[in-house]
Design a protein around this nucleic acid. Structure first.
Lengths: 123, 123
DNA sequence: CGGAATCCGACCCGATACTG
DNA sequence: CAGTATCGGGTCGGATTCCG
């Protein structure tokens, strides 16, 4: 039995990656860090309405996957910087394509929703 | 204040699209339907371990967003076919890029995880 | 075959409080 | 500033049952 990545078979490694991309917060962090290195509270401010618990948890997951790097400086108070790794940068590029699709087609999607909610069947 | 799509501001329409892409099941359905039109139970069989409830729910959402179309035939028993709409097809292409990234880099991710779990800091 | 409806446990996530 | 720990409600989603 060869090792073929199969996103349709549960507990396949590829599915794991898909799941992380599926995470709303993780995607937003990737997009932000693609622009520049940021500190914890700076990320918190930019991602409107994320709780510090979720941000912390998201950053830890992304670091574990090797997508972002964490650097702490022994200042007072502490300074911590987050940045994309090379691996994370390649993913961020792919994700950017998704957000571009979203911005380009949001209008069509919303119109489809209105039609559907009015009881009309299809386009 | 102009209407600029801002995925970082909660209750932005773009965020809605991002959230749907974030849905694990929705992504799998899109990938499958990109290949061919499929019936309900056929989808069910191919997506290992999806429940009937989630499949039904996922299909309804995708149809509402105008990404897939549903066609019912008055046979006995009933036959229902699901297919991508043109809009859904454009999204499926973008999503395919993500799964390709996943398959290509799953090895690096898993290695990063092992390093992280051993307590090593970064690459 | 293609669903809808109900029940119910699991875990996600926010709010809060505390630490170095 | 950059987190961790704990609690609790709300939602997600699986199992089951029933219907056209």
């Amino acid at each position: 039995m060869l090792h073929r990545p199969d996103p349709f078979n549960a507990r396949c490694p590829t599915r794991q990656v898909l799941d992380r991309i599926g995470d709303k917060w993780a995607v937003l962090v990737l997009i932000l860090l693609e622009q520049e290195t940021l500190r914890f509270n700076e990320l918190r401010r930019r991602i409107d309405s994320i709780s510090q618990k979720m941000l912390s948890q998201t950053l830890k997951s992304l670091e574990r996957d090797g997508l972002i790097s964490r650097r702490a400086f022994a200042t007072v108070p502490v300074t911590v910087e987050y940045a994309l790794t090379p691996l994370g940068r390649t993913l961020a590029g792919t994700v950017a394509a998704l957000t571009q699709w979203a911005e380009a087609h949001i209008g069509e999607v919303e119109e489809a929703q209105r039609r559907y909610d009015r009881g009309e069947v299809a386009a």
